[in-house]
Design a binder for these strands. Structure first.
Lengths: 220, 220
DNA sequence: CTATTAAATAAACAGTGTTTATTAAACTCG
DNA sequence: CGAGTTTAATAAACACTGTTTATTTAATAG
C-alpha cells in the first residue's frame, strides 16, 4: 500500500488497456473482470478506477482501437494499384471481411456492445480520433468514386454506402455469431463468393441509365 | 413456504417465460435478473431453477419465440398476392426489416447472444420446432423461385440466400445498434430505400446471361 | 393418521462492478 | 531538516449478480 516507486504518471492507463486487450481477445469480454485485470497488472481493482470511470470506458477505448485497426487494413487497399473505383470498393469489402474474420473478438468489441458513443462526450477531451467515423468516410469516398465513374446513378451516396456496409457487416455478423443454420457453417470463402456475386450485381448497374424504368437489354 | 394451492403442474414455466419476455422487452436482457423475474411472478429465485437450468435457457426459449414471430411476419407475404418471385423476395426483405425495427429487443435476443444452439442438445426433448431453421428455409425457397424465374444464374442458391440475408441483417443490425456514424441516424426509410436499391440491382441481373463475361447493353 | 412425495423456500456461496475511508510514500516549503 | 501537504494505492465494504444447498411445509397415498 502507499505510493509506488516513481511510476511515470498516467501510463498505468495504457498498461490497463494493453492487458485488458490481451485478456478480452483471449477469453472474451464478458468473462474478464476488473479484478482479473487488476491482478494481471499487479494492482488492486480500486486503482483501475483512478484511471477509468468504469469497465465500459475500457471497452470504448478498445472499441476505438478496433476501428483504428480496421482503418489500417483498409489503408492497404489505397496502396495496392487498383484499376477502377468499383474494384476498389469490392476489395474494400473483402478486406473488411478479412479483418472481421481474422479479429472476431475485436469485431465483437466494435459491434456488440451498448452504444459507445454515449461515453465519448463526458470523459475524453476532444474525442481524439474517432476511427469509426474515419472508417465510414473512407467507404463513402469509395462509393463517391464509383458514382463519378457512372455507377449508382439513381441512389444517393449515403444510401449506397449504407447498403454496401450492410452487406459486409451482415455477412461477418452472421458468420461470427454463428447464426446461419446451414448444414455446414459458412466460411470466409462463402463470404468472398457472396461479395463477388454482389460485386457483379453492382458492376452490371452501370450499363443501365434508370433502373426504375423499363429497359431493353441485349445479352452478349 | 411449502407447497402452493393446487397449481397445475408445469405451467409456472410459461409464467416465467411470459414475465421474462415482458421484462426483457421493456428493460433489456442484461438488466433483468433472476431475482427480478422471481419477484414479479411472486416466487423466489430458487423456484425458477426448478423449471429452468439457467438464465440462458430462458433466453433460448425466447430466442426461439422471436424466430417464430419473424416466421409469422414472413407468412403474411405468402398470403398477399405477389406477382413475381423477385417481388416476393424483396417484400420478404422489407418485412424482415419491419419486424426487426418493430421488435428491436426481440431482435437483440435473437442475434446478440452467445450461440443458443449449444443448449438445445442437452435440455429439450426433440428440439421441438427450430424456427430459426424454418425461417431460413423460407428464404431459401424464395431464392429458389427466383432462380426458377431466371435470376441468379451463376450463383448457387445458398450463396444468394446468404447474401440477401446478410443485406437485411446488416442493415437492421447497424440501425438497431446505432453503429452508423451519420450526421442523422439512419431510419427505417433509409433501410427501405436501400432495399429498393438492392432490389433493382437484383432485378437487373436477369437480363444478363453470364455476368462474369463482357456484355452489351442498350439503355432504354 | 401416519408416511411419503414434492413444491417452494431461506440462506448461503462465490462471484460481480463500484465506492469509501485509510494508509503511506513522495514532494513542498518554511 | 522536519512538518505539512499532496496523492498513488489500497483494504474493506456495499449492493448487487447467477446458482446451490439444506430445510420447511403442504398435499397426497397407504
Amino acid at each position: 500500500m502507499g505510493r509506488p516507486k516513481t511510476n511515470e504518471r498516467e501510463d498505468i492507463r495504457s498498461l490497463v488497456l494493453e492487458k485488458a486487450k490481451a485478456l478480452f481477445l483471449k477469453e472474451g469480454y464478458a468473462s474478464i473482470t476488473i479484478r482479473k485485470i487488476a491482478r494481471a497488472i499487479g494492482y488492486t481493482p480500486a486503482t483501475i478506477y483512478l484511471y477509468f470511470q468504469s469497465k465500459a470506458e475500457i471497452l470504448y477505448e478498445l472499441h476505438n482501437e478496433g476501428f483504428r485497426l480496421l482503418y489500417e487494413y483498409k489503408m492497404k487497399i489505397g496502396e495496392a494499384g487498383t484499376s477502377g473505383a468499383m474494384e476498389r470498393l469490392r476489395n474494400g469489402g473483402k478486406v473488411y471481411i478479412d479483418f472481421a474474420l481474422e479479429n472476431p473478438d475485436y469485431y465483437e468489441l466494435m459491434f456488440n456492445m451498448p452504444e459507445p458513443r454515449n461515453f465519448m462526450n463526458m470523459h475524453r477531451k476532444g474525442a481524439a480520433e474517432d476511427y469509426a467515423m474515419r472508417s465510414y468516410e473512407f467507404l463513402r469516398q469509395s462509393v463517391q468514386r464509383c458514382k463519378d465513374e457512372g455507377y449508382f446513378k439513381d441512389v444517393d451516396v449515403d444510401t449506397a454506402a449504407f447498403t454496401f456496409w450492410s452487406v459486409v457487416h451482415g455477412m461477418v455478423a452472421l458468420i461470427i455469431r454463428k447464426r446461419v443454420p446451414y448444414p455446414q457453417a459458412p466460411t470466409r470463402q462463402l463470404a468472398h463468393e457472396a461479395i463477388e456475386f454482389f460485386g457483379r450485381l453492382m458492376t452490371m448497374e452501370r450499363f443501365v441509365s434508370d433502373t426504375r424504368n423499363s429497359l431493353k437489354v441485349i445479352e452478349g
